[in-house]
């Protein structure tokens, strides 16, 4: 399958998954918010169930298409730790990530989410591009 076709299909499934949560319970499928609350409260059952679904989905992928997983080839553990800290803190301060702002927010035509998505895309592009230009990321 051409990568663009797989990507589009993957996107359609992500859209379905988010639409399911919206239409069944009026909730936004924002993974940073759901997982932070599942870990640190308020720990409601549906949040734990959503995170469990992500895990079981991961297991299904691991069985059916293990090549879907890859860790970055040119990033040290130190960089990944720094990345995790920034992603964890930034998504809480900005109240959303790629799912909540990028998919659900843009799909709702939310101006807040459009600006947030613009901001994280801009710094994401800038960071990855600068690291590349500096000749590797270790």
């Amino acid at each position: 399958m051409h990568p663009f076709v797989a990507s589009t299909l993957g996107g359609l499934i992500i859209g379905l998954a988010s639409a399911l949560l919206l239409l069944s319970q009026g909730r936004i499928a924002g993974i940073s918010g759901i997982s932070a609350s599942a870990a640190f409260g308020p720990r409601e059952g549906w949040r734990l169930a959503f995170v469990a679904g992500l895990g079981v989905g991961g297991l299904v992928l691991l069985q059916s298409m293990p090549t879907a997983f890859a860790v970055p080839v040119d990033r040290s553990l130190f960089l990944l730790a720094a990345a995790g800290l920034l992603v964890g803190f930034g998504t809480q301060l900005g109240r959303g990530c790629t799912s909540g702002h990028g998919v659900c927010g843009l799909g709702r035509l939310s101006r807040r989410s459009a600006l947030a998505t613009g901001a994280f895309m801009l710094t994401g592009f800038a960071t990855a591009s600068l690291l590349h230009l500096m000749g590797g990321a270790r």
Partner: peptide, 10 residues
Amino acid sequence: GAAIFGVGWG
């Protein structure tokens, strides 16, 4: 917050 998240993502 979104800008910080983007740096971490990149």
